[in-house]
Amino acid sequence: MNVVVCVKQIPDPVAPGALDPGTNTLNRSGKLIMDDSDNYGVEMALQLAGGEGDEVTLVSMAPGGETSGLRTGLAMGAAKAILISDEALAGSDALGTAKVLAAAIARANPDLIVMATESTDGYTGTLPVQVAELMGLPSVTFAKAISIEGSTIKVERQTEAGFDEVVCPMPAVVTVTAGVVEPRYPSFKGIMAAKSKPVENLTVADLGLDASQVGSAGSGQEITDVSESEARGSGEIVVDEGDGAQRVVAFLEQLKVI
């Protein structure tokens, strides 16, 4: 089985970059890391594609030919990667990115495409279904468990009330939630092996796309203004007057945590 995992390379949240004052977009120059939320997708793909002849391919779009984040996924065990890097892609919105990823994924001819539910720097959560729509594939979101049964996948789809069981023909796009599997750590050997794993570098032209349809030129979205987020307010202190437990339960119920 051939599984593609879409991997986002983001500035390290420990030392986040600033917004570009000209475009109001995140400055993505320099070293990037693999988005933590993609650890789960890579791990899930490695578990699903663990048989002989199975293969996991990473697909990523990033500026400056950046592969640092991809190397993490390769060190975990993915076989190869496709990187799309092109100055024309600067300023891409989610749909523009989806067009690029869909075209790149198609080259790998996968049986299954795994993605995170959303990235931790953009949080749109719209990309996976856009990719599925552009590729004419079914999509199943919020998977908390995936199993393969012949040419179909069986997904436990997380809902507020519990989960739905969804059966879907392959190929398909599936998004996985954080915590769905315990991601492995790249071992030293994996890290060194990743150095020599193939990364195919592609441009917009290589994908046969029109540059006017992607990047800021093709973006249907314009960031007109940005502002500081509100400072976090002080929390509510519950003084236990004998009803502390009930009040905590009521609070958690209000959050729909329990």
Binding site: K31, S68, T72, M192, K195
Partner: peptide
Amino acid sequence: TDEHRLFRKTLRDLF
């Protein structure tokens, strides 16, 4: 190198 950085991050996450 990138390999040193990734090994460092792996250990930090692991610990």
